[in-house]
């Protein structure tokens, strides 16, 4: 039998429970981190899983790992929610900055997409990684990062984009399964 999402897409209700069991805490952790408030995170997680059910048929394991696909849906829904509320997370991520030197790929399943991503993150220039982490993990806008790091907005954008493109390049070159996605 296929992955959990493929089973969900086939209408296997046991797979629905497996999906929640497997990825519920992951989605909850992402939502709580970005939204801060437990109540809002609960609502968001419910929205995210509705979207997961709706998107399950479009999941292609040759494009992204299942956990990555689910993380991507979670991020989309959470950023939509933040934008609708016209707000960004207010917590400034000091610990995020600390993580720029504390990423441990060995904590992650070897050869997983996350493992490769961690290694790619560690390989980034410090200034690009710093900007990326503030944007991705804590949801800070370019402007907020510029203010926090006391640097021009254009520099923040350039670093973020270069870092992201490097990440993609690293992931595509270290993943045979992803070559179809990068042409």
């Amino acid at each position: 039998m296929g992955s959990i999402l493929e089973r969900v897409a086939a209408g296997d209700e046991a797979a629905v429970r497996d999906c929640v069991s497997q990825y519920g805490d992951l989605v909850w952790s992402i939502a709580l981190r970005l939204l801060k408030r437990r109540s809002e995170a609960e609502d968001a997680v419910q929205d995210i899983f509705v979207d997961i059910w709706r998107s399950a048929k479009r999941y292609d394991p040759s494009i992204a790992a299942e956990a990555t696909f689910i993380t991507m849906i979670a991020r989309r829904r959470i950023y939509d929610r933040l934008r609708r509320a016209d707000r960004r997370p207010t917590e400034v991520g000091d610990e995020v900055l600390e993580r720029t030197v504390g990423i441990d790929a060995d904590k992650l399943e070897r050869q997983s997409e996350a493992h490769r991503a961690a290694r790619a993150l560690k390989a980034l220039p410090d200034d690009e990684r710093e900007v990326l982490l503030l944007a991705m993990l804590d949801g800070h806008s370019h402007s907020e990062i510029a203010e926090r790091l006391d640097m021009p907005l254009g520099t923040v954008k350039t670093r973020a984009r270069r870092g992201l493109l490097r990440l993609r390049e690293q992931l595509s070159t270290t993943s045979p399964a992803r070559k179809g996605a990068t042409r």
């Binding site: 992951l26 990555t68 991507m72 790619a120 993150l121 991705m136 990440l167």
Partner: peptide
């Protein structure tokens, strides 16, 4: 996908 993979890696730290 790259951003999500990186996010996943960070959350799982």
């Amino acid at each position: 996908i790259a951003a999500a993979a990186a996010h996943l890696a960070l959350v799982q730290q």
